[in-house]
Computed example of a mutant assay.
Amino acid sequence: MTIDERLKEKGIELVDPPVPTASYVPCVTVGNLVYVSGQGPVRDGKNVYEGTVGKDITPEEAQKAARLCGCNILAQMKKHLGSLERIKRIVNLKGYVACTDDFKGQAVVVNGASDLMKEVLGDNGAHTRCALGTNSLPTGIPVEVEAVFEIYEQR
Rank of each mutant, 00 (worst) to 15 (best):
N47W: 01
P142Q: 00
L33S: 09
A75M: 04
I73P: 10
P142D: 03
P138N: 01
V109P: 08
N135L: 07
V42W: 03
K88T: 04
G112A: 03
T52R: 13
G105Y: 03
A147E: 09
S23E: 13
A66N: 06
G51N: 10
G95F: 07
D102V: 09
T21S: 14
K88A: 14
I12G: 08
G31H: 06
E150A: 14
T2L: 09
V25G: 08
V19G: 01
V36M: 06
K88P: 09
G31V: 01
L84V: 05
V110P: 05
I141V: 14
T52I: 15
L132I: 03
S114V: 11
E85W: 06
I90E: 12
H127V: 00
F149T: 08
V15P: 00
E85Y: 02
I57W: 06
A131S: 15
A113P: 07
G125S: 03
A62G: 10
R129C: 02
K10H: 09
Q63I: 00
I141L: 07
L33Y: 14
V30H: 12
N32G: 04
K79N: 11
R67I: 01
N124H: 12
G45E: 11
A107G: 08
P41Q: 01
K88F: 12
L121F: 15
A126H: 13
Y96T: 04
P142K: 00
L14I: 06
K46M: 14
I87R: 11
G38W: 00
C69G: 11
T29F: 01
R155S: 15
G40F: 05
E13V: 13
L132W: 04
V42C: 07
A147M: 06
A75P: 11
V97S: 07
E119C: 05
G54V: 00
S83M: 02
T134K: 10
D123E: 14
L68C: 06
R6E: 13
C71Y: 12
H127I: 00
V34T: 03
G11N: 10
A98F: 02
C130H: 01
N32S: 12
G51E: 05
H80I: 00
E119D: 15
S23R: 12
G38T: 00
G54E: 06
C27K: 08
P20A: 03
L132F: 11
C27S: 09
N124A: 15
L116M: 04
Q76E: 14
R155H: 13
V109C: 04
C69R: 02
A65D: 08
D4E: 15
V148W: 05
A66P: 09
A131V: 00
K10M: 13
A62C: 09
F149A: 06
A62K: 02
E153Q: 14
K94A: 14
V15K: 15
V97F: 04
A131C: 14
L116Y: 02
V28T: 06
T29W: 00
Y24Q: 04
S83P: 06
G105H: 04
I87F: 12
L81N: 03
E5T: 05
Q39P: 10
R43H: 07
N135W: 05
G133D: 10
L137C: 08
K78H: 04
T128Y: 11
V91C: 07
V34W: 05
G70T: 00
G54W: 03
I73K: 06
V19S: 02
T100R: 05
G54R: 02
S136Y: 11
G45R: 03
Q106G: 13
D56W: 03
S37D: 11
